[in-house]
Amino acid sequence: MMPAFTKGNEAIAESAIRAGLRAYFGYPVTPQSELPEYLARRLPERGGVFLQAESEIAAINMVYGAGARVMISTSGPGFSLMQEGLSYLVGAEVPCVVVDMMRGGPGLGNIAPAQGDYFQATKSAGHGDGRLLVLAPWSVQEACDLTRVAFDLADRYRNPVAILGDGLLGQMMEPVVLPAPVEPARDVAWATTGAGSGPARVITSLDLEPEALEARNRRLQEKYRRAQQEVRWEGYRLDDADVAVVAYGISARIARTAVDRARDEGVAAGLVRPITLFPFPSQAVRDVASRVRIVLVTELSAGQMVEDVRLAADGRVPVRFYGRFGGMVSTPPEILDQIEQAASEVRAA
């Protein structure tokens, strides 16, 4: 099949339609507006609901009410506004797919690419003890593929799943082979449809009795333990590596080129790329950390994922960090430089 040549934002939108998207709710924000604009054109004609809400706060609560394959997309400021709603979804075990195309922050920041929402996406779904499952594609094809995965995981775990991209991934074009459409089951056992002859269905995250709320939380935590089996990561040129670079999303692509250039110069470098950020591939990072002599984490942030890498590496090797932020994007020569510094550090030791 001839691949299409599309922007990441549009590939996600089309992939969502092919995953059986029934409804999209959102609010415009750069750099992801191509995604809702694509769906505004294409979703209604394919039988789905497209609605631009009055705010991200409203939009995430529309998602909460949808009771079907539903998606929402945004960037940093809007993702912040969705946190309360996401907490309700997690607590009530309502699935959805939420796309965050990260931009420079904090505050209004700017619209240039960044990876500063890692903490917000992976550490907590709003307040309380809930989590999002988080997927981080590094190419337009993977953004498309992981969109399908995200819907499946959301349904399987009855939990919101985040696709964490960045402005660059959303707006770059690459060839993409789109998956065949599926028609997911329409009636889900938990949704409030008002059509049941059985017991009434109630969607809530309220448990006045602490015992009941603790039980709910145990159920959630048990679910997150089960979700460990969904861990995805990729290794590249790690076999004899002295320096392991750990990076996700667009940073990993930049790092991959740097790794190749390092190899050309005789530096044994490799790459670990987490694809699921929650659950985090801790075991893989730990294994790699036991084999290499130094780890270099690079992100478009002041250093967020590096904390998970340090936890996983657990003191086995030195973990160094290099970040650009505020919308500045690192380049292969910059990362190569960092790899060389790391390599000379271990050579000196």
């Binding site: 001839m2 691949p3 040549f5 619209i111 240039a112 690419p113 402005g167 660059l168 707006q171 770059m172 074009m173 690459e174 060839p175 919308g327 500045m328 994007v329």
Partner: peptide
Amino acid sequence: LAWAAVLEGKNATWLPSYGPEQ
């Protein structure tokens, strides 16, 4: 250019202005 490369079975990436270049 990028699309033509894809038609010929190659890989291509196309990136618009980003960051300070914008």
